[in-house]
Design a binder for these strands. Structure first.
Length: 482
DNA sequence: TGGGGTTAT
DNA sequence: ATAACCC
């Protein structure tokens, strides 16, 4: 295996190299010593170890399942196939299949509007996420077989860094037979492929891998979805949505500006949310071009240097954030929303329900949560519905009971949660809640304790062969004050 | 607007 | 503990 350390180093392409082409048309003011991203001294805290090792040119795929909840429901009950189907949570249709979309149903439409628009719409309840979550992780695990670097985004989207895989496949090919490489799926903007351009070749190989991923997801799990292949996460995500159900698209560098300028508003830029979009609008910034050309210094003063620099880079199509393997979840939560909860007894009932499901999930996971959190939302006429939370460590004797044996872990947990509840809500005064959520977080692998840099203070129950002297562990978790 | 998730401050 | 972001 002649691994040549040379390769991309010769062409040292930065992502932005491609910008110059189309950007010329916009009269790009990039002339300023822009915040490029020199390979020089790292000024960002975010040490980025690119998986290719040398080049900053990556191949990323974004995989986005079609109307995921509806697909899972149609697999559960095949009679639903071919009918317009909506998935309902409370009084919202949170997603629907394409039959329903053709009839005018939109995501997050109220059940009233949906039924009015389409009386024959079939609705299934999707408040229990269990089957969706399970299927979601099957997809992620399948993708991890291609490359271990898979980052989840919600239940129905995944990013995969294909750089290493592409590099290997490129090595398999005899170098002057690149002319045999073909694209799989669409090329964004119908751009011509240049088989002499190594960046094109790498992205085409990415498109082939993306097609294999979608095939595997369909053959093994019965799910369809879209994929987008590009040089970073932002662009891969944007391009995956170009051809919509069950298709894929690759973005070649020369069409990058075309893609980002196809957005009608900055709010459509992933990473620019509701709040930031509002603040930008107040500054007179509404299009991608507005944001690209807005004076950096002023933007930094308005939004803070971190947000300002990040979103202005996004507006240029630049995104150097790595694909971070998600691994197992960092938290488990269950929530329920309702019109009104105004008594402690009522709240306790809800909390117990949520806790039962959570305990099942946490038990299956195998790891142990060390923190317990309670979240509420108070009724407030039109205000922005913000949440309040209280959390505390889970006492170690309760953590122990989680794993094996069916000791009653409910009772102590409910007691803790009700203390957290009374800490947030003055139960002697009238109150009106519209949501309660319970969250387990700070998950640790079995039998490790938090404190101490040294980790071999194992708990007594499952001790190892070595040093066996019984140690009385005095590391009591701090409890809530009464 | 549901029922989830994540990271940054 | 909250606030922002994502779906």
């Amino acid at each position: 295996m002649g691994v040549e350390p040379e390769e991309e180093g010769g062409r040292d392409e930065e992502e932005d190299a491609a910008l110059s082409m189309d950007a010329g048309a916009t009269g790009s003011p990039l002339g300023a010593p822009g915040p490029q991203e020199p390979s020089g001294p790292p000024r960002s805290v975010h040490h980025q170890v690119v998986s290719t090792g040398s080049s900053s040119s990556r191949v990323i795929v974004h995989v986005d399942l079609d109307c995921f909840y509806a697909q899972v429901e149609m697999i559960s009950n095949p009679e639903l196939k071919g009918k317009p189907l909506g998935v309902q949570q409370k009084y919202l249709v949170v997603t629907c299949n394409y039959e329903a979309r053709k009839l005018g149903i939109k995501k997050l439409m109220s059940v009233r509007d949906a039924k009015e628009k389409c009386p024959q719409l079939v609705l299934v309840n999707g408040e229990d996420l269990t089957r969706y979550r399970e299927m979601s992780y099957k997809v992620t695990e399948l993708l991890e077989e291609f490359s271990p670097v898979v980052e989840r985004l919600g239940f129905d989207e995944n990013f995969v860094d294909l750089s290493e895989m592409v590099k290997k496949r490129l090595q398999q090919l005899q170098s002057d037979e690149h002319s045999l490489v073909t694209v799989s799926g669409h090329v964004y903007n119908n751009q011509s492929i240049n088989l002499h351009d190594i960046l094109h070749i790498r992205l085409l190989i990415g498109s082939q891998i993306a097609a294999e991923m979608r095939e595997a997801i369909y053959n093994q799990l019965g799910l369809t979805g879209c994929a987008g292949v590009a040089s970073n996460k932002l662009l891969a995500k944007l391009v995956s949505g170009i051809f919509k159900p069950n298709q894929q698209t690759v973005l070649l560098p020369e069409s990058c500006q075309h893609l980002i300028h196809s957005l009608n508003h900055i709010k459509e830029m992933p990473g620019i949310g509701y709040k930031t979009a509002k603040r930008l609008e107040a500054l007179g910034i509404s299009s991608v071009h507005d944001l690209q050309t807005f004076p950096s210094k002023i933007l930094e003063k308005e939004l803070g240097i971190s947000v300002a620099q990040r979103i202005q880079k996004l507006s240029l199509g630049e995104d150097n954030t790595p694909v971070i393997p998600s691994g197992p979840p960092q938290s488990f939560s269950e929530e329920d929303s309702f019109k009104k909860c105004s008594s402690e007894v009522e709240a306790k009932k809800k909390i117990e329900e949520l806790l039962v499901s959570l305990l099942n999930r946490v038990c299956q996971d195998g790891r142990k949560p060390h923190t317990l959190r309670l979240i509420i939302r108070r009724y407030s006429s039109e205000k922005h519905c913000s949440r309040e939370s209280r959390q505390c460590p889970i006492p170690s004797h309760v953590i122990q009971k989680l794993g094996s044996g069916n000791y009653d872990v409910m009772t102590p947990m409910v007691e803790i949660l009700m203390k957290l509840f009374r800490n947030m809500v003055n139960v002697k005064m009238p109150f009106h809640l519209t949501l309660i959520s319970v969250c387990f977080c700070n998950l640790k692998a079995l039998n490790t304790t938090k404190k101490g840099p040294i980790d071999y203070y194992l708990t007594p129950s499952l001790s190892t062969t070595s040093h066996s002297g019984k140690r009385s562990f005095k590391m009591k978790d701090t409890h809530m004050e009464d």
